[in-house]
Design a protein around this nucleic acid. Sequence first.
RNA 1: GGCCCCAUGGUCAAGCGGUUAAGACACCGCCCUUUCACGGCGGUAACCCGGGUUCGAGUCCCGGUGGGGUCACCA
Length: 495
Amino acid sequence: MEEVRVRFAPSPTGYLHIGGLRTALYNYLFARHNGGKFILRIEDTDRTRYVEGAIENLIESLQWAGIEYDEGVFLEDGKIVQKGPYGPYIQSERLDIYRKYVDELVKKGDAYYCFCSKERLDKVREEQKIKGLIPKYDGFCRSLSLEEAKQRIANGEEYVVRLKLPHNKDIKFHDMVRGDIVINTEDLDDQVLLKSDGYPTYHMAVVIDDHLMNITHIVRGEEWLPSTPKHVYLYEVFGWEKPTYVHLPTVLNKDRKKLSKRHGDVSVDDFKAKGYLPEGLVNYLALVGWSPESNEEIFDMEGLIKEFSFERVSKTGGIFDKDKLDWVNAHHIREYDLDKLTRLAIPYLIEAGYIDEKFAKEYFDWLKVMVDTVREGISTVSEVVDKVDIFFKDQIQLEGDEALEVLKQEQVPLLLEAIKEELASIEEIDEEYAKGFMKNIQKKTGIKGKKLFMPVRVALTGNTHGPELVNIIYLLGKQNILNRIEYVEKYYLKD
RNA sequence: GGCCCCAUGGUCAAGCGGUUAAGACACCGCCCUUUCACGGCGGUAACCCGGGUUCGAGUCCCGGUGGGGUCACCA
């Protein structure tokens, strides 16, 4: 069997979209699963939509997500470089190639020069719409003779090249997830292949490049399905072997519409900034539109590669469910390497004003314990910030009546006394000592269970909920605990 | 509007002619945890409608309805 070669071919028009990331991911998984090659090609044939820095961002996003490719466009020391035997991989650098094939098409009579102005085209479309017709090129230049066309070009007239589609011809192709699809050329337009600025349109460039780069499977969003017959027809006209098509279901928002910026966060950067782990995002995204045979939900990249297949890709568009993403991400956070997780959390802690660079360096081990104790209750890295205020605030703040109730319990004064007494006997709390701390208090007071833990928790944190108390005691340290007890005694136990 | 695609709980989804119609998220209980989480157990909840085909249809066919996509010198 021939080697699998797939590609992800985004346009540098902005940031990498979550839907785009999933397309890239499926390409990647398929390539790796089959021991094939994955290529990153840049489709920048629309000069008006080009965004500075978009290529760099695209590459960085893929890299962040852990999606690696073998050929195409890379970033080295901040510079865009290209690698691979089929370059260039940036379409704007392949203009002469497209030109050659366009000329071939014209020569063979499968394409023609068109001199219609934008204004005329708009007018035609407008009239068609009013008449209730399908907006479509009316074929005005279709029968122009080649000599006349050449003459007009020589005269300096602007022109485009259009595909000369045969009338009433069924174009058939097979899609790995949709099955057989037939579309009649009457429902298609004489698509522009070469624009007046000399750049090819997507439809031309994609066919040429996929063929020249030996792409075996075209894996892309289903929004491309209606224009696929144009591409198929081009393959037929050129006499090239067709690739296998795989059109992926759409990732939708809650309104069942295509994910868009208007409906919240859609760029990979947004999710990264919010503290989602690449492992979590990728894991979740893989599950929107695909399901493993094993029925499992938590995967690392290796697991996905092992299980992935297009046979199990669904036809139905899937809504991007943030709740489930959070759940998946939480799983990965709990199992993440603690050093790595702590490093990821530090920027959020600095931003929140809890620590600075110096502190992060000096007390890294302490931070590790802290991150480790709060990781159980969070679903994004940024949420550490919400959980650690208890370690940095000077005074506690009671959260709700429930917390106050706890402090009003009769055993509380005795408990606090016991803690002070216990702490008086030591210099500082180490991890080992912290483990036995509550037991010591229990022995001293004879109080146990909720009656013991809850008041201590509230006195130290102000909250009835929170991370493991033993860790809180260690993290706080002797002086902080004493301060908080004093505060509680002063303000909550007076009456 | 033409064309194309799609249709199982609120969401992601198994299912591929015969099942009590899996599982997961979310939600609600209970248990575990000397506290809090994690976790475990259980519960509520679905085959869009109508015709066929068949002994038998969520599964196959046709029609309808609904949703989405697409109709550019954008990709």
